[in-house]
Design a protein around this nucleic acid. Sequence first.
DNA 1: TAGTGGTCTAGACCACGAA
DNA 2: TCGTGGTCTAGACCACTAA
Lengths: 247, 247
Amino acid sequence: MPTPPYRQIAAELRHRITTGELAPGDRVPSENAIVSEYGVAAETARKALGVLAAEGLTEARRGSGTRVRAFRPILRRGTKRLAQSGWGEGRSIWEFDLDGRPLRADRVTVEPDAPSPAHVAVALGLAVGDPVCIRDRRYLVDDEPVMLATSYLPTALVVGSPITQPDTGPGGTYARLAELGCAPVHFREVVRSRMPLPEEAEALALGVGTPVVLIVRYAYAAEGLPVEVNEMVLDASRYLMEWEFPA
Amino acid sequence: MPTPPYRQIAAELRHRITTGELAPGDRVPSENAIVSEYGVAAETARKALGVLAAEGLTEARRGSGTRVRAFRPILRRGTKRLAQSGWGEGRSIWEFDLDGRPLRADRVTVEPDAPSPAHVAVALGLAVGDPVCIRDRRYLVDDEPVMLATSYLPTALVVGSPITQPDTGPGGTYARLAELGCAPVHFREVVRSRMPLPEEAEALALGVGTPVVLIVRYAYAAEGLPVEVNEMVLDASRYLMEWEFPA
DNA sequence: TAGTGGTCTAGACCACGAA
DNA sequence: TCGTGGTCTAGACCACTAA
């Protein structure tokens, strides 16, 4: 079982990328170039390039060409409050953009009184179908979509507050929850990663070979009362996530 | 620009998977079945199935068939110490196996006195090339590989201790660091996700369409002294990660 | 308009698994 | 042995981009 040609070609090109011979933005050999250089059929050349694309290393554009992709993430700090200096903050093995640029919200929809899905009801301590307020939006940085988010809050808790409006006002949802006497005091974030569904790929304008990171944040008020479930879908090629905690 | 046939076929099959009509473990229509059912060429049928595989929804095995994949993660608690009851622990929108099964180490190698790579040197507050102890291993659950890990510790700190041996003894590296007067008191974890490199896919026996999660853990002793950098590579289809923190 | 990537076909041969 | 997925070819047509 020798390595098939398309994998050998992919390996050669990958080597040129990982060693930096082909830098981000550089054009990778075209299908035609591979056909003539390696003496293979067009479909075989395509398949070789397809391997790199599926690995997230390259991005093809019809009419233009195939280019090496860059990883230019923004930093998401999970535990902002603990991030005092002294812990080598900012020192990472990866380069990242400072999170100075604002997240702009987009496609904001609010359903103040929707039946709770089963998995949300359990997390919020409700019965399945109990009313919840569902806040849906997309976040953009430099007009490029980077994250989708869907929040669920008990309708019984937030009815009548700006939380049921598209604009929650200064300080956002958590400030309003505090005014309602339910300020979050504890957070739990559960994270996984997978390849995107077509809708997610479309909404985030993901290139092929780009996974998404799913973060589900559970916010608790005093006495362990759950007040919010926030399901986030992040473009994995745009995010670096950080959590800090004591031993 | 109508949707090409192979995408339409993929969408139909995907729908049957996401609705549960095709459950994890079930066989998906074979290439031949798709050819005769949709009246397309074999390569087109292959491409349709390839879409689902790239999305991580299915897994093909030569001679056998293509089956729907399952997501059976194990839970990794980042902040174990904070995990007191009352915060709805264990209540997640995803099912997961309890982390009662032990992680077994595999392919353990130790280099007690290696030159530090640039990115590690910066994080550890060393000069590039200063000696570090590099501990490399693979972790398995039920004899299946789930994570790769590479630790870097300053050689000047750990020379002569069991940390430079394959077996670090009871309590592991952190217990030994404590005995050296450098007990970690603070952790920082930086996370990203991407598609695996071929070596990673091989070492973790990853199916196509399976991303990896990269966690870099920085451990600090008192006064912010960095004592360890641990680069982990997790099979995204086997892990759920959790972090908890106060507001 | 020339070059690029995207889709599709019809046919071939191979490697592997299960019956 | 037969059905499965994996690879490859030679050729065709299309859609898009840039010069």
